[in-house]
Amino acid sequence: MRIAFVGKGGSGKTTLSALFSRHLARSGAPVLAVDGDINQHLAEALGHDGELPAAPPLGAHLNAVKDHLRGTNPRIASAEAMIKTTPPGRGSRLLTLLGDDELHTRHVRHVGDVPLMVTGEFEESDLGVACYHSKLGGVELYLNHLVDGPGEYVVVDMTAGADAFASGLFTRFDLTFLVAEPTRKGVSVYRQYRDHAREFGIRIAVVGNKVTGEDDLLFLKEEVGDDLLTHLVHSPFVRAVEQGRAQGGPESLEPHNRHALNILREAVDACPRDWATLHRHAVEFHLRNARAWAGEDLAAQVDPDFVPGPASLL
């Protein structure tokens, strides 16, 4: 299952991404956490302190990622011809979660018991000449070519706010958790995300965060309605993690917050995977690029007879 965490900057989406990833990993489930935020803090939220183990970010090696994924697909002449929305087709090199392949071997590092992949920071050399979403292209390509199975999880910490809609990446998930604080600013991103998500049939669920009492919870219920799935209360454990003095994993989390993580997993596990719809969204955004980029024959990269899924691995 593919899960995105989105929300206003400072809402706690990175913290929730880390807590949920560790919760899954501690249960023994195969999980990959992906830092897709312009502020690369997921490793710290996972509890890492100091220098990270060497593993190159996806954004710094996009051509190599493209060259690996295009495989022998005759519709893609070169890595340079491939763009972030290029969907897989016959001959493409498909991936299994944390498989023994070049991409996972090169780009995955372990932070505690959680495998982590990062897009890379927006660097000074990018200022004025690059868009951060070009780095996120590696995540979009990865998800387009991933054939994940039941009981496997990819958890992506997305860019803050409605900026997540700057690419088609927001359609790559089975369920999107929108983290909202009990404030007017906290729920404003929810309204933007709700309206865009409805247009594409994207499943969203709101997770209230930093709830301190009944008034906060009532506010969220009034503003969000039935989209409110659960909420987390103020957490001394999370604060200790953020200050680098926490001991233990999610089992040290407060009982209410542990229960909230269980609710998140139950919601994810209840979502049926629809390979045809996932692929249709990928093709749709690719064709949008084909129409927008005059002179580029991108539409020819679409294999009309291909739908990813377990059968495609054969």
Rank of each mutant, 00 (worst) to 15 (best):
R2M: 03
A4V: 04
F5N: 06
G7N: 08
G10L: 06
G12R: 08
T14E: 09
F20P: 01
F20W: 07
S21P: 03
H41A: 13
A45F: 05
L46W: 09
G47A: 00
G47P: 08
D49I: 09
P53D: 10
P53T: 01
A54T: 09
P56V: 04
H61M: 10
H61E: 14
H61R: 14
L62I: 12
L69R: 14
R70E: 00
T72P: 11
T72C: 08
N73P: 13
N73Y: 08
A77V: 13
S78V: 06
P87R: 14
G89P: 00
S92A: 01
T96S: 15
L97F: 06
L98P: 09
L98K: 14
D100Y: 03
D100F: 05
E102N: 06
T105D: 15
T105H: 11
V108I: 15
H110E: 12
G112D: 06
D113N: 05
F122W: 14
E123R: 10
E124L: 12
S125N: 14
S125L: 10
D126A: 00
L127N: 11
Y132D: 11
Y132Q: 08
Y132F: 15
K135A: 13
K135V: 10
L136N: 11
G137R: 12
L141Q: 12
N144D: 14
G149V: 00
E152K: 12
E152S: 02
D157Q: 07
T159H: 13
T159R: 07
D163T: 09
A166W: 10
L169N: 06
F177T: 05
F177H: 02
L178N: 11
P182G: 06
R184K: 12
S188R: 15
Q192L: 11
R194Q: 12
D195I: 04
H196K: 14
R203K: 14
V206W: 03
V206R: 00
G208Q: 11
N209W: 02
K210E: 00
K210I: 02
V211N: 06
V211A: 08
T212M: 14
G213A: 07
D216I: 01
L217R: 13
L220P: 12
K221N: 12
D227P: 03
L228P: 06
L228V: 05
S235R: 09
P236T: 14
R239W: 09
R239D: 13
A240H: 04
A240C: 08
Q243Y: 03
G244R: 00
G249P: 02
E254P: 04
P255C: 10
H256Q: 15
N257S: 07
L261G: 02
L261M: 12
L261F: 07
L261R: 06
N262S: 15
L264T: 00
R265T: 08
E266A: 14
A267T: 08
D269F: 01
P272W: 01
R280M: 04
V283F: 10
H286K: 11
H286C: 05
A290Y: 11
A292E: 12
D297M: 03
L298S: 02
L298D: 04
V302H: 07
P304H: 05
F306P: 06
V307T: 14
P308E: 09
G309V: 00
G309S: 02
